[in-house]
């Protein structure tokens, strides 16, 4: 079993860890890498922040002015009448 992983492998595991539980071996490899690598520790913060931003996006977007075009609204109502 290898003892060290590259930054690319570590970043892959950081993303994977958000979505699925890592095996004990992968967890150990990642933790060891993070202890020694400031860049990947920062990357971990970025991944987690990104996720927080997007998880809040839908609620926050209710304030946005994204509207269905009137033409589309009219077309749908016409289609409903034709059913």
């Amino acid at each position: 079993m290898k003892l060290m992983i590259t930054c690319e492998e570590a970043s892959t595991l950081l993303s994977e860890k958000i979505d699925v539980p890592l095996s004990p071996a992968k967890r150990l490899l990642l933790q060891t890498h993070l202890l020694m690598c400031r860049k990947c520790t920062l990357f971990k913060g970025q991944m987690n922040s990104l996720r927080k931003v997007f998880l809040g996006l839908e609620d926050a977007s209710s304030k946005d002015e994204i509207k269905m075009p009137d033409s589309s609204r009219d077309r749908i109502k016409q289609k409903l009448r034709e059913q």
Partner: peptide, 26 residues
């Protein structure tokens, strides 16, 4: 592999602040 983590000064995102700004949501 190296470049993706080199931006140490960048996107230290503050989620709450980003979501408050319509242009950033855009």
């Amino acid at each position: 592999s190296e470049e993706m983590v080199q931006d140490t000064e960048s996107i230290r995102l503050n989620p709450e602040e980003i979501l408050e700004h319509q242009e950033l949501r855009h």
